[in-house]
Design a protein around this nucleic acid. Structure first.
Length: 203
DNA sequence: TCACTGATCGTCT
DNA sequence: GACGATCAGTGAG
């Protein structure tokens, strides 16, 4: 009988206290979600940093009811509705009182792939999770998780990498109209689950 | 492989 | 009342 050890949440003390450092740190880390149907887990392969002085960030104009989680201690979830259609998943990244976060843009499924496919009918392979709206759909992440502590053993949390992380590439962020020139997107080079145009993934 | 477009709605002005 | 950290589908080169 093989015992399967459940992954433990990352300790908050292990997370970098600065947004760009955290965005890099999270590449390769694991997202675990205990769905009612069973557990799903995935490896983060692409992130974007949204800084405190960043006009592209939701926190730029100050704290509101919606973006409050981004002003919390690092390691909390901020989930919001984008274009009225998709939920996007972020991790708060600085000390309490400073509004900043890291957007998770793409993941590589590790466990529970059939459950993910059930949530994205007709999709398979990279198409399952290679975008910020796709991965929340596949993994069942939604508004009910906004504000959740991802360093605590709950239904949704972050865990350490289960495999070595490849070389990290850097590019400009995707889909922005403001501050689009800043090199604040990070990704594992060569990973097939990356989002965005091919040329951005060369860097 | 890239460019373009419609869908859709909570949040803030 | 306008906007947006997206996606899927379509059509051109």
């Amino acid at each position: 009988m093989v015992k399967v050890r459940k992954p433990k949440p990352l300790k908050r003390a292990d997370l970098p206290t600065e947004t760009v450092a955290l965005a890099r740190f999270l590449i390769g880390a694991t997202i675990v979600h205990e769905l009612p149907e069973g557990p799903v887990a995935a490896r983060i392969v692409e992130t974007e940093a949204y800084l405190p002085d960043d006009a592209a960030s939701h926190t730029f104009r100050g704290e509101t009811k919606r973006n409050r989680p981004m002003f919390g201690e690092r390691g909390h979830a901020y989930v919001y509705l984008n274009y009225g259609v998709f939920w996007l998943f972020n991790v708060s990244s600085e000390k309490a009182g400073i509004g900043a976060g890291v957007l998770v843009r793409a993941v590589e499924p590790l466990f529970g792939v059939p459950l993910m496919q059930a949530r994205r009918p007709g999709k398979s392979g990279p198409d399952l999770t290679n975008g910020p709206g796709k991965l929340t759909l596949a993994m069942g992440i939604g508004p009910q998780h906004s504000g959740l502590d991802l360093c605590a053993r709950g239904e949704l949390f972050l865990a350490a990498p289960i495999a070595p992380t490849g070389e990290i590439g850097v590019s400009t962020r995707i889909g922005l109209t403001k501050e689009a020139h800043r090199p604040l997107r990070f990704f594992e080079r060569g990973n097939p689950f990356l989002s965005g145009p091919r040329k951005l993934n060369a860097g």
